[in-house]
């Protein structure tokens, strides 16, 4: 997606506050583990029936595995962010929470690959992150926002490829989550959180 619109100014906040406009406590409350795992279970149930009905193909397994590789990298990236010492609360909580979502995505993808008879890819031993360019909280937020934006595009590019529609639905569900991450990170950067009507 091209950010063709100017970012609007965040309301005046103390410089350190990074424009996190949401009430702080709402971050961790809304997304209870129960809700998420229930959704995950429902999706996985769909995937298992897909495996049984075998309308999923080796090509679908390959899509899931590519997505899994990207999720594993995102988990590692948030780890770098969280351990950088550059993030302050509540941004740090947010990063940890988002990392948790990526872990849930990765778990679900790996399980589904297995249930379809594939072998899930492993995390790489090392990742090349632009750590020398991360000097402030905003650098870390910008880095994370870029990854989330890319993830939205990647899932968007995967959804139409699945032969099995339940898997396409599960991928779309993850896409929605990544898009929320992207918007909240932009918001935290004081940028227009939702700059366009369509993601691409």
């Amino acid at each position: 997606m091209t950010d063709t619109q100017p970012d609007f100014q965040a309301p005046d906040l103390p410089a350190e506050d990074n424009g996190l406009i949401l009430p702080r406590r709402s971050f961790l409350r809304g997304a209870g583990t129960l809700t998420l795992s229930a959704a995950a279970v429902a999706m996985l149930a769909g995937c298992e029936s897909a495996a049984a009905g075998s309308s999923a193909s080796a090509a679908d397994v390959s899509i899931l595995n590519t997505a899994l590789g990207a999720e594993l990298e995102a988990i590692a990236a948030y780890q770098v962010g969280a351990e950088s010492g550059l993030l302050r609360k509540p941004v740090l909580d947010l990063a940890v929470q988002f990392q948790g979502h990526h872990k849930e995505h990765a778990d679900l993808l790996a399980k589904t690959v297995r249930s379809l008879g594939g072998r899930p890819v492993d995390a790489k031993k090392t990742y090349d992150f632009p750590v020398d360019q991360l000097k402030s909280q905003n650098d870390v937020l910008g880095f994370a926002a870029g990854l989330e934006k890319g993830a939205v595009s990647a899932y968007l590019g995967a959804v139409p490829l699945f032969q099995n529609r339940d898997l396409a639905k599960a991928a779309a569900s993850i896409l929605g989550d990544e898009a929320m991450h992207w918007a909240v990170l932009r918001n935290a950067l004081g940028q227009n959180p939702v700059p366009v009507a369509f993601v691409s």
């Binding site: 091209t2 990207a70 870029g146 890319g150 595009s153």
Partner: peptide, 9 residues
């Protein structure tokens, strides 16, 4: 700018 779509991978 379009290349942003490739940056997940």
């Amino acid at each position: 700018q379009i290349y942003d779509r490739c940056l997940a991978c």
